[in-house]
Design a binder for these strands. Structure first.
Lengths: 148, 148
DNA sequence: GGTATTCCTATGGGAGTGCTAGGAATATAC
DNA sequence: GTATATTCCTAGCACTCCCATAGGAATACC
């Protein structure tokens, strides 16, 4: 349960790759931007598949792309300022255990829906974890910050 | 993301239904056991579909079934003693964001897999939330216990 | 113009979800 | 012991989503 798609896994690995290489907009302009093909090779990911993923991250504002020859991708912000929640939501959509999660009203089913509060709590727990980690934390292998 | 299947949603609603009706093994022997058909009717769930779900919960040891005429289902334990983690795992399997979550060794991909620690932390966060809630908590609509 | 890149759209196999259907096994009632 | 009410087991099916793969259009550098 709670399987994370390869799309998200690959996306995160690509972002970690860029972060490790210091590919951030503004910084280290000497470096050429990293191409999708290069990241795919280095991370053993299908190149064409990764292309689409990087496009999504660009649309979401997490990456900046340069087209044409010597083009490629860079992080739009330093890793410290990118929360994992942003990344995951960009690729998988909102954390939403059940569909009725946003409607403050009662569920489709008529009566009182007690489980909804339970699912809401789960969403908050997951959102809390994801938003408390930055790309930099993942890069540095920090599994937890001491407080569960 | 993190969609919970109807199987699990229906299963939980059925368990809440049984808990509310006081259908616990040993207690209130006067009551007839609740049938799948009756629960399905009351909760507006497809009867045949619910049958399979209740069977799963029986196999998992959360319900006790009685076959034949006047048969039905009862909770195997009082609601206070049933953790939501048990229920969810019985219906959806282990919480496992990525497949490499149990292998202490490095992922399939050769090098160091930093994201694995991150996913492990997510699993622990979800497991923690689920194991901290009992069926009774859900029944009483307790969304949180005060501590995030 | 040639080349290297991102970007867009379409396609397809495979797996999982959400049921539906039919009947076998089992227990009670008369 | 037959009828009846229930759980239990297996199979199947439409639908959607996942995981790519493919081909080419748009763009930018040389």
């Amino acid at each position: 349960m709670f399987n994370v798609s390869t799309k998200t896994q690959y996306g995160i690995r690509a972002l970690v790759h860029l972060a490790r290489a210091g590919e951030v907009v503004g910084h280290v302009q000497g470096n050429p931007a990293a191409t999708a093909a290069a990241i795919a090779r280095s991370e053993s990911i299908s190149p064409k598949y990764l292309e689409g993923i990087l496009s999504l991250l660009t649309t979401a504002g997490l990456l900046v792309s340069e087209r044409g020859k010597h083009g490629g991708y860079r992080l739009a912000r330093p890793p410290r300022e990118v929360s994992m929640l942003e990344i995951v939501e960009a690729l998988e959509g909102e954390i939403k255990p059940v569909d009725c999660i946003d409607s403050r009203e009662v569920c489709a089913q008529g009566g009182s829906c007690l489980p909804r509060l339970f699912w809401l709590g789960l969403k908050e727990s997951v959102d809390g974890y994801l938003s408390s980690r930055s790309l930099k934390d993942v890069l540095e292998g920090e599994a937890d910050d001491g407080r569960a």
